[in-house]
Write a protein that binds this DNA or RNA. Structure first.
Lengths: 336, 336
DNA sequence: CTGTTAGCGCGTTCAC
DNA sequence: GTGAACGCGCTAACAG
C-alpha cells in the first residue's frame, strides 16, 4: 500500500494542502472544526506528515545520539536508562552507538552524525586524552556535545562524571586501613582518562600512607576476556598482592574466580574492592565491596545539560565538569 | 556557523550541483579526478549531504527501531548487543524505545514510527496476546516487524524466541528429580505470553510426575521491586514451598535475599532455579542454577530476519517462529 | 562525463 | 480562515 501524502488527503477532503498542514501545526490559525475534521480524516486514512519533508523544511529531527564504548555492562545500561527517561520526557529519540572501545569507530560515528541526523550528542569517550579533531566537526555544526563518565581533557564540552579520584583514594585507603600492605590496582588501560584518574587516587592513598608504590602492582589487563584472565592469573601468582582495587567490575570478577580456583581466601588472604554498578554485589560469594557510581543519575544529568544547551538555556562556552559522588559500600570481600 | 550545502560547494568549485551530488553517490558516472577534487573540497569546507533532503528524495533512513519492555537487565542488554552488531554491519542505525511494560507506550511508539523514521521494527512485546490493531499500521506502511523473545500470538510476524516451554518443563523436572514436592512458580504476570508459556512447562512437568498442581503455588509477583519483595516474603511464609522456579531473574534474586534473611538453607530447604542471563550466576551465593537464554543470538537472528525482509530476500507472508534453545545450568542453588 | 530541469512532501510566506 | 505559490537540499532523468 502506498503511503498517503498531504496532497492526497487535501484532495480527498476538497481543501488545500496548506490547510491540512496547518491542522498539524499547533500555533496556526485554523477553524477548530476544520482541524478536527482533518485530523479525523488523517487518522482514518492513516496519514502522517512525512518526517523528512518536515525536517528538510527547517524543523529538527528531535533525535540525540548516545555514543558509548561498550554495551551490556550495568553502568552503561543504567546510564542509558537515565538518558532515555529524560529524552522521552522531552519528546526526543535516542540513537545508540557502541564503539567497542575503538576510537576509530568513535570518529566514524561522529562524522556520520554531522549530516544532521542528530541535534546533540551524549558521549562516553573511548580513547585517550589527545587529538580529537573530529569532535570539532560537531562544534562547527552547532551540535552540542556532553560527556558522561569518560571524557577527553582536550575537548571543550560539559562533563558529568563521578568523583573518581576521591573514591579511588577512599577505596585504596579502605584496603590499607584493613591492613593491606601490597594492594594491587587493576586497570584496563593506564592511559585512558578514567583509568588514569582512578590510578592517581590509588597512588596518592599509598603515598599518604607512607607506602612505596610498586609499578608492578599496577596491572594492565586489557580488554579481551581471555587475556584478562591470563594476565590476572599470572600476575597474581607472581606478585601475591594482599589487596585488589579494580577500576572496573569486569576485572574484579575474574579475580574472584581465580581465588575460588586457587583456594585463596577472601578477604583473609586477599581483599577485593572495585568500581561496580552491579545490583547484586551483596549477593555474590563473597559479597563484593564496591564503589558504586550513580549511573542513572549521571545519564540523567548529562541529558539535562544537553537539553539546556539545545534550548539555548545554557552557554556553550562555559564548559563545566560536574562530579557526582560515588558510594563506597564495604562488604565481606574486604571487611569479612 | 552556517551549514554549507550542495549549492555552495558547487559554486565554490565552479561546477554544477548534480556533479557534486554524483561524487557522493557510488554508482554514478563521474570522472575520477573530478570526484576526488569534489570530495577533497567537501572535506575542506566540511560539507555533508543533508540527510533529510536525501531521504525525502527517496532514499531510506537506514534506521531500525528496537522496542523493548524494560532496560537494564542482562537479557535485553545482550539482545540489543546482538542487534547492534548486525545493524552496524549493514550500515543501519538503531533507535531504542523502552515501554516500561506499558502497552500504551508501545502503541504510541509504533504510531510515532509510522512517519517514516524507521524502515523496520524489532520488538519484544510489552503486553498480552490480544487486540493489537496498532501493529497493522506498520503493515500498511510496509514496515516489517520481527518479534524477539516476547510476542503477540495474534500478530502475523516472524518470531525469534527461546524454547521456553521445553526449558521450563526441564527446569521444573530438575527440581522434582532432586526431590522437591512443592515447587512454586514465580511469574510477573500470568497473562503475558512468556509467563504463560513458561507456566505451561511448569504445569505439565508436575502433571507428568503425577503431582497435583496447586494454584496457590503459582505466585504472581508484579513488576514493582517493593511489591515483589513483599509478595515473596508473604507467600513464602504462608506456603513454604521446597523449590522455586522463577520465570525471570528479577524474581529469583529477592527470593534468595529473603532466604538469607530468614536463614533458609539453599538448596537443602529450598532449591532455586530461574531464567537468567546473568554472566556471574555461578559466582552468586549460592551459585545460582539457571536456564540461560541465548540472548545475543536471539537479537542477532531477529535482526538478520528483519534485514532479509528489508532486502526482499524473505517473504513477509510466511511468518515463522524460530526457537533458540536455552541451556539448563545446574549450580549449587539446586544440586548443592 | 557533465549541466539543466524537475520534482520529492511539506511549511510558510503572501494574498484573498 | 483559507488557498496559491515558492523553496528547503538533494537526486534522477534527460540532454548535450
Amino acid at each position: 500500500m502506498k503511503q498517503i501524502n498531504i496532497k492526497d488527503l487535501a484532495k480527498s477532503l476538497g481543501i488545500s494542502k496548506s490547510t491540512v498542514s496547518r491542522a498539524f501545526r499547533d500555533n496556526s490559525d485554523i477553524k477548530p472544526e476544520t482541524k478536527v475534521r482533518i485530523l479525523a480524516a488523517a487518522e482514518e486514512l492513516g496519514y502522517r506528515p512525512n518526517l523528512y519533508a518536515s525536517n528538510l523544511r527547517g524543523a529538527k529531527g528531535k533525535t540525540i545520539a548516545i555514543i558509548i564504548p561498550e554495551f551490556g555492562n550495568n553502568f552503561f545500561s543504567q546510564a542509558i536508562k537515565g538518558i532515555e527517561e529524560q529524552a522521552r520526557a522531552k519528546g526526543y529519540y535516542t540513537l545508540i552507538f557502541v564503539t567497542d572501545d575503538d576510537v576509530e569507530k568513535e570518529s566514524t560515528f561522529i562524522k556520520e552524525l554531522c549530516n544532521g541526523r542528530v541535534e546533540g550528542v551524549l558521549m562516553s569517550a573511548s580513547g585517550e586524552g589527545k587529538k580529537h579533531n573530529y569532535l570539532r566537526l560537531l562544534k562547527e555544526r552547532n551540535i552540542p556535545l556532553v560527556f558522561f563518565d569518560r571524557y577527553y581533557e582536550d575537548v571543550e564540552a560539559p562533563v558529568v562524571t563521578g568523583n573518581d579520584y576521591e573514591s579511588s583514594y577512599a577505596a585504596t585507603k579502605h584496603l590499607l586501613d584493613l591492613g593491606c600492605k601490597r594492594p594491587a590496582y587493576l586497570v584496563v588501560d593506564k592511559n585512558i582518562s578514567i583509568g588514569k584518574i582512578r590510578m592517581q587516587g590509588y597512588c596518592d592513598a599509598l603515598k599518604d600512607a607512607g607506602i612505596d608504590m610498586l609499578q608492578e602492582l599496577i596491572i594492565e589487563c586489557g580488554n579481551d576476556k581471555g587475556q584478562i584472565y591470563r594476565v590476572l592469573k599470572k600476575s597474581f601468582a607472581k606478585l601475591r598482592p594482599d589487596g585488589i582495587f579494580a577500576s572496573v567490575e569486569r576485572l574484579a570478577m575474574p579475580m574472584i574466580r581465580i581465588c575460588h580456583e586457587e583456594q585463596v581466601a577472601i578477604p583473609e588472604q586477599l581483599k577485593i574492592i572495585c568500581f561496580s554498578c552491579l545490583e547484586f554485589a551483596d549477593m555474590l560469594n563473597p559479597a563484593l565491596s564496591t564503589v558504586q557510581q550513580p549511573a542513572m543519575e549521571m545519564g540523567r544529568t548529562a541529558a539535562q545539560i544537553l537539553f539546556e544547551l539545545l534550548q539555548g538555556n545554557r552557554k556553550d562556552d562555559e564548559p563545566q565538569i560536574i562530579l557526582l559522588p560515588s558510594k563506597l559500600i564495604p562488604q565481606k570481600s574486604t571487611i569479612g
